[in-house]
Design a protein around this nucleic acid. Structure first.
Length: 466
DNA sequence: CCAGACGTTGTT
DNA sequence: GTCTGG
DNA sequence: CCAGACGTTGTT
DNA sequence: GTCTGG
């Protein structure tokens, strides 16, 4: 089985950050329309790795596809809607008409440096940037499909959807679903090379590694047009704690007060513990140790995808980069089980970064307060979309020449990539956060250590909460 | 992003 | 016109 | 039989 | 393409 390791991705990452990709001269398929971005939303092209067509071997292809699956049966004259299927519940991919046919032979993986998820707090939504502590790329399990529309004669459009699963116990306070993260080489190999009849359930589970960390970022990144390093800069949250509990349940109270938070980048207060604040804590969670990020053996044993000769760029294959191996190292996998039973209720303010885990979330549904539950829905918006950040892929030469432009607000529209040399150097990376702390207490009931299993519509194992 | 809705009561 | 869902 | 759907998240 | 609902 071919091996695809983190190494590859890690390598890309290093190249882009440190070396600047010049030396990766990979010829990507003709229309490799990719531009690095800190804010990727459905409809954008990003590189994915898939098995080579018809290959029963270990050949892999690196190719750009648009995020947001357009099933092959979509009418040729229909306007493709990438927002409809940008995610697929892992628990039900074998049942849903749009996905099940892709499971046998259209599995792929997507590598990103991190992604964003919004924590809801009443009417407000606070985005958080989630990434691996050591910045290795995150590898998501995905499914792709092809479609031809009426125009562009014969042009085949490749699109993909990212699988989601229930959240791990440590991530659950932020959101109840998370992308399926293939944390080690074995799981990547299983997903990419497993036989059509394989039981993929074992790899389509919540990633529980303690090395998955996060911190709040500006809500400005909620706009697809907002791109640039600012998207991944940590901000301090203003905490409003201290409200009597009664207010917690009162939406009214909460809202009014909190409303200020929206884009706030400022503030921060600190506080001490209090009874749980409504909002869970913002925090950066840390993990405990970094698992071994080490890689000990770097993999040498197995070739990584990059050096894997078989990875070709679909159209032209000539170029195969010859990179040597990199270390792979599996991500840390199992975390330690943490048990915090204590739900700490308090909030830790964010002082800087590492804080602590949050407390368990209040349960969402029911507590509604008194009247006023109905707020204007401001929360919709892009609630769902994953904003995948990937400057990681800057190694793509094209990309390199066309760095993302930092835009503000809706002022502009996406401009086609133009060579604008405007390098923002490697110095932009998001701050790392060291402090590991115990994760937050899970809130799912019943849950067992990891993601809670609940049932819901479908079957397979992991279910999510809520 | 952009097509489509633009409601309430009663509920999961 | 503006919000919402996809 | 055949037209129509085929998705996810999140909620009041 | 394939399943579902009417």
């Amino acid at each position: 089985m071919p091996t695809v390791g983190h190494g590859l991705l890690q390598h890309w990452s290093m190249i882009s950050f440190i070396f600047g990709l010049n030396f990766v001269d990979w010829n990507f398929k003709r229309n490799f329309r990719y531009r690095p971005s800190y804010n990727v939303s459905p409809g954008r092209d990003i590189p994915v790795i898939r098995r080579e067509d018809g290959s029963d071997g270990d050949s892999l292809v690196l190719q750009c596809m648009k995020w947001g699956l357009i099933p092959s049966f979509t009418k040729k004259d229909e306007k493709p809607d990438h927002y409809k299927m940008f995610n697929a519940r892992a628990e039900s991919i074998r049942e849903k008409a749009s996905f099940r046919r892709l499971v046998p032979n259209s599995r792929c993986v997507v590598a990103v440096e991190g992604f964003y998820e919004w924590k809801k707090d009443g009417s407000k939504k606070q985005p958080y940037y989630i990434h691996l502590e050591d910045d290795r790329p995150l590898v998501f399990a995905a499914l792709y499909d092809t479609w031809k529309n009426s125009e562009a004669a014969g042009e085949i459009h490749y699109t993909f959807t990212i699988l989601t699963t229930s959240s791990s116990s440590t991530f659950g306070w932020l959101h109840d679903r998370m992308p399926v993260i293939l944390g080690d080489k074995e799981s990547m190999d299983t997903w990419l090379f497993g036989s059509p009849s394989s039981k993929f359930e074992t790899v389509l589970k919540p990633y529980d590694g303690p090395d998955l960390v996060w911190y709040p970022v500006t809500s400005a990144m909620g706009k697809p047009s907002f791109d640039g390093p600012e998207c991944v800069m940590e901000i301090k949250l203003k905490t409003e704690e201290t409200k009597p509990i009664s207010q917690f349940f009162s939406k009214k109270g909460v809202n009014s007060e909190q409303s200020s938070n929206l884009g706030s980048m400022q503030g921060d207060l600190i506080k001490n513990n209090q009874p749980k604040s409504l909002k869970e804590e913002p925090q950066t969670q840390g993990s405990l140790d970094h698992p071994s990020v080490t890689d000990e053996g770097n993999d040498e044993s197995k070739p990584s995808i990059l050096d894997h000769p078989s990875v070709t760029d679909e159209g032209n294959d000539e170029s195969k980069p010859s990179i040597s191996t990199l270390t792979n190292e599996g991500a840390g996998k199992l975390p330690i089980k943490r048990d915090y039973e204590e739900l700490s209720a308090n909030a830790k303010p964010a002082c800087g970064k590492a804080e602590k885990p949050q407390t368990s979330p209040a349960r969402k549904k029911k507590n509604v307060g008194p009247a006023d539950n109905k707020q204007p829905t401001l929360l919709s918006f892009f609630g769902k979309r994953y904003h995948v950040h990937n400057h990681l892929l800057q190694h793509l030469k094209r990309a390199h020449q066309n760095p993302p432009v930092h835009r503000r607000a809706a002022t502009e529209i996406e401009s086609p990539a133009l060579p604008v040399p405007q390098p923002y150097g490697p110095a932009f990376l998001p701050p790392r956060q060291p402090p590991p702390l115990p994760p937050a207490p899970p809130y799912h009931r019943g849950g067992a250590g990891k993601g809670g299993y609940r049932n819901s519509t479908s079957l397979q194992h992991c279910k999510s909460s809520t």
